[in-house]
């Protein structure tokens, strides 16, 4: 038996909204420690890694580790029915064929229960080595989201350069070229604050289309942490009370 009660159901709605355009069918791994998933997008350019810690749920029970194959598209449809103030219970019997979702209103005035049919999915787990990154950028998630969105109007590729003092977002397209540079600072305003932890300068290119999809997670966390090393996928990390959502994106490399 697996059962998890989440008092703040909105966070689960936001998580699924943040991944549904990247991955459509995924295996959730449930253990006594956590609910987790790792899934690539169809073109194998981006990877989603989600961990929700058991200890952060109001109630959590998992007698036996289990893999739950879920259609994210269909889960998103059901979660649309849950109110923003609702609590959500996730429940599955051992060797389950359905995932039961229960949405309960704040004053217990209304309860919705749905059984989502589970899928048997091939898992394509990637081994991601623990590694030290050359540069780490911590900044406002909404500011990063705005920069990516604005630069998408110029072209499809973002050139990201980080040195010890600043981070530069540069683009070059048919209409011209441009860049936005932000200096490391410890402003009280969360929008302006930028923390750099850089051992070596890095300059890399990434597809803005994917970064814009990742930035849907800015509703989960005020900050985003970008980890970069030359010629390896960048990591965007959004941390929140319940756990963390990380996105990996393969770089574009000059042939």
């Amino acid at each position: 038996m697996f059962e998890a009660l989440l008092g703040n159901g909105l966070i689960l709605k936001k998580i699924i909204e943040s991944i549904k355009e990247l991955v459509t069918e995924v295996n959730f791994e449930v253990t006594s420690e956590a609910i987790s998933l790792q899934a690539m997008d169809a073109s194998h350019v981006a990877l989603v890694v989600l961990v929700l810690r058991a200890s952060e749920f109001e109630e959590y029970r998992c007698d036996r580790p289990q893999t739950l194959g879920v259609s994210i598209t269909n889960l998103a449809k059901l979660l649309k029915i849950a109110g923003n103030d609702d609590s959500i219970i996730l429940r599955a019997e051992d060797e389950a064929h359905v995932l039961t979702l229960v949405f309960t209103g704040k004053n217990n005035e209304k309860m919705c229960e749905f059984n989502l049919n589970l899928l048997t999915l091939d898992s394509e787990h990637l081994g991601i080595p623990e590694q030290e990154y050359s540069a780490e950028v911590t900044m406002s998630s909404s500011e990063f989201s705005r920069i990516c969105r604005e630069l998408t109007q110029v072209t499809d590729t973002l050139n990201l350069s980080v040195d010890k003092e600043s981070v530069k977002f540069a683009v070059s397209g048919d209409i011209g070229t441009g860049s936005i540079t932000m200096k490391a600072n410890n402003s009280d305003k969360s929008e302006e604050k930028l923390i750099l932890n850089v051992s070596d300068t890095v300059s890399m290119a990434f597809a803005l289309r994917y970064l814009n999809l990742f930035n849907k997670a800015s509703s989960l966390s005020d900050e985003v942490v970008l980890s970069l090393s030359p010629e390896v996928p960048v990591v965007l990390k959004f941390a929140f009370d319940l756990g963390e959502l990380k996105y990996f994106l393969a770089p574009k490399i000059a042939e």
Binding site: M40, S43, H44, V45, A46, L47, E124, H125, L126, G127, I128, P129, T157, A205, A207, V232, P233, F248, A250, P251, K252, I253, A254, E255
Partner: peptide, 14 residues
């Protein structure tokens, strides 16, 4: 123009 890499260029199957 730079080429888009895929994740398997960097990470092996677990």
């Amino acid at each position: 123009k730079p080429a888009q890499m895929v994740l398997e260029n960097f990470f092996g199957k677990a």
